[in-house]
Simulated assay, not measured.
Amino acid sequence: MSSPVVQGWTIVTQLRKELSPDHMQGVFLATTGPRWIIGRQYDGPSGSSGFIDEEWWHGRYFTMGSPTENMMAALDAYPEAAMKAGVGDRMTAQDATQSLARFLAGPERPGRAHVSAGWQESDSGHRNPGGASTELLPLHEAKAELFWFLLWSTRLNAMERLTKGVTIDRQEAHSLVRGATGPIRFDFGYNTYWLAEATA
């Protein structure tokens, strides 16, 4: 299912709730490619979309960094914006990250071999390295799981700043996964990530 587009912005995720009888409020996270936005929707009656003539109330734009830096900054700021709008809860960050992972993975690609997604700490100093892997999945689902590992499961221990120049950076990691049409394997930070035709 394709994501809705408003004024050229592709909406990755949105939250809209009825906070009092027949009164709704909401926010959305959207992109045009390198640029990202957190938008505050118009308040309105039950069933209203939050957009009037494809316009929104106001927005915070993320445009000054690389596409990946803009995306990560917007993702980090989204839960706070949702809370300020009165529609966020403790699951907002996780739900938004899952939506973003599915968005980045792209559409279903019929005919592609099923693959598993996984990651493992690659620092040899760990006696019991952390990691996880999935069962064999359709390619777009496995890519979404790999993005989940990158965006959520290993966000704090990837330590990109400590391995700058040693492994690829976050933008390169994301580009590899987005462009994958089959198995891949790469190191990012102190972790190894993969898509594999058999569980690794």
Rank of each mutant, 00 (worst) to 15 (best):
M1C: 03
S2N: 14
V5I: 08
V6D: 05
Q7L: 13
I11C: 12
V12Q: 05
V12A: 05
T13P: 07
L15N: 10
L19P: 03
L19G: 10
L19F: 00
H23L: 14
H23T: 05
G26L: 04
V27Q: 04
L29A: 13
G33R: 04
G33P: 02
P34V: 01
R35D: 15
W36Q: 08
W36A: 05
R40Q: 12
R40L: 08
R40N: 06
Q41I: 09
Q41M: 15
Q41F: 04
Q41E: 15
D43H: 11
G44K: 12
P45G: 15
S46H: 13
S48I: 06
G50T: 00
G50P: 07
G50C: 04
F51Q: 04
F51H: 01
I52S: 01
E54H: 01
W56E: 11
W56T: 03
W57V: 00
G65L: 01
P67K: 06
E69V: 03
N70V: 00
N70M: 08
M71A: 09
A74E: 10
A74V: 12
L75E: 03
D76F: 11
D76Q: 14
Y78H: 06
P79H: 04
E80N: 13
E80A: 15
A82G: 15
A82C: 06
M83E: 10
M83F: 10
A85K: 07
A85W: 03
A85M: 05
T92C: 07
A93I: 04
A96I: 04
S99R: 09
S99H: 08
L100A: 08
L100Y: 07
R102C: 07
R102V: 13
A105S: 05
A105I: 00
A105K: 00
A105R: 11
G106Q: 13
E108H: 15
R109P: 02
G111A: 06
R112P: 02
R112T: 12
A113F: 01
H114R: 13
V115E: 11
V115F: 10
S116N: 07
A117F: 04
A117T: 02
G125H: 09
H126F: 14
R127G: 04
R127T: 07
N128K: 08
P129E: 00
G130A: 13
G130E: 11
G131M: 03
G131N: 08
G131F: 00
E135S: 12
L136A: 09
L137R: 11
L137S: 07
P138F: 01
E141Q: 15
E145V: 05
L146H: 03
W148F: 06
F149W: 02
L150F: 08
W152S: 14
S153H: 13
L156H: 05
L162F: 09
K164A: 15
G165Q: 10
G165N: 13
I168V: 07
D169I: 08
R170V: 02
Q171D: 02
A173V: 05
L176W: 11
G179H: 02
I184R: 03
I184C: 03
R185Y: 01
D187K: 10
F188G: 10
G189Y: 03
N191S: 15
N191Y: 14
Y193T: 03
Y193G: 03
A196T: 14
A196H: 08
A196E: 14
E197N: 13
T199S: 15
T199Q: 15
